[in-house]
């Protein structure tokens, strides 16, 4: 494992922000970290990067305890925590050079990471003249400076326009293909599903589920299906009366239904018995559906 947390716990006053969190991030994985605002994602990431001390538990990076060794354990970690802030009155290149000096990294690497993030031609400009997207790319540049084996990204696409988001997503894909393990927290569930091999979901500081994305979707207790049926409104009304149906919505001339996995044949049978013509049942379960289902359920609990 490149990163492991053992019983990670942190409270702020009487509020438990993170509660006994256990995570294992395999080498080379792209690991999505999901949870609603205030669920403890940022606090967890800050504990991983030695910005916040846990009340209990430990973070291990390549077997080295962050809590025992402090910043020495972070030698092969690159991180971007929320929005990237730099010395705005200095140029992008100067900022990265300063960090290279801190890391003891060769200055040739500075130009490399600026080119890699598409900032080489703006490196001499002061950071205060950068757009939010450029700042975020500079944030990724500094994270890549020390040739990390693990990249921790906390909401890296926050505040970016669609083009900026795509650029960051493409960059993450490239880095992942180079074997760098990536731990990424994001609200963009569709993107996480596309990018990540593994995922963990937390709510109110507690782990709800974690594992490979495909395994989680396969083993989920419910499915989301798209049903093509001739009388949409009638079908919707009928299905709403059933206890074992979760949600029923009409989207794009089809019914989107959430239900328990082993009830699909029962649903088809029910619609046919009510003289409706079912032409197709298409599985549509997404990470977002799963996330909303699980986080919603946790919150109610």
């Amino acid at each position: 494992m490149i990163l492991q947390t053992n019983n990670l716990t942190k409270s702020f006053g009487s509020r438990k922000a993170v509660d006994g969190l256990n995570l294992e991030i395999p080498e080379g994985a792209v690991y999505g970290f999901l949870g609603p605002n205030g669920s403890g994602k940022s606090t967890t990431i800050r504990m991983m990067t030695a910005l916040i001390s846990p009340d209990e538990g430990e973070v291990f990076i390549q077997g080295k305890s962050v809590q025992s060794l402090g910043n020495d354990a972070l030698g092969q970690v690159g991180a971007l925590i929320e929005k990237s802030d730099f010395y705005k009155h200095l140029s992008g290149t100067t900022n990265i050079e300063m960090l290279a000096r801190m890391d003891g990294t060769d200055f040739s690497r500075v130009q490399f990471v600026l080119e890699r993030t598409g900032l080489a031609n703006r490196g001499k400009d002061k950071v205060k003249t950068y757009s939010q997207g450029m700042k975020q790319r500079l944030g990724i540049a500094q994270a890549l400076l020390s040739k990390p084996k693990l990249l921790i990204l906390d909401e890296p696409t926050n505040g970016l326009d669609p083009q900026g988001m795509k650029e960051v997503r493409d960059l993450i894909g490239e880095l992942s293909s180079e074997g760098i393990a990536i731990f990424i927290s994001s609200h963009l569930l569709d993107e996480v599903q596309k990018m990540c091999s593994h995922v963990a979901m937390i709510s109110l500081g507690k782990l709800i589920t974690n594992g490979k994305v495909n395994d989680i979707l396969t083993n989920a207790g419910f499915v989301m299906i798209e049903v093509l049926v001739d009388q949409l409104e009638k079908a919707q009304d009928l299905l709403k009366s059933l206890e074992w149906i979760g949600h029923v919505d009409i989207i794009d001339e089809a019914l989107r239904v959430s239900l328990e996995k082993d009830r699909i044949s029962g649903l088809v049978q029910f619609l046919v018995q009510n003289e409706l013509k079912v032409s197709a049942v298409i599985p549509r379960t997404s990470l977002e559906d799963l996330y909303l289902s699980m986080v919603g359920r946790e919150r109610i609990i």
Binding site: N71, L74, G75, V77, I81, F86, D103
Partner: peptide
């Protein structure tokens, strides 16, 4: 958030 996450 950028300087204190390094090995220094």
């Amino acid at each position: 958030r950028i300087t204190l996450i390094r090995s220094t």
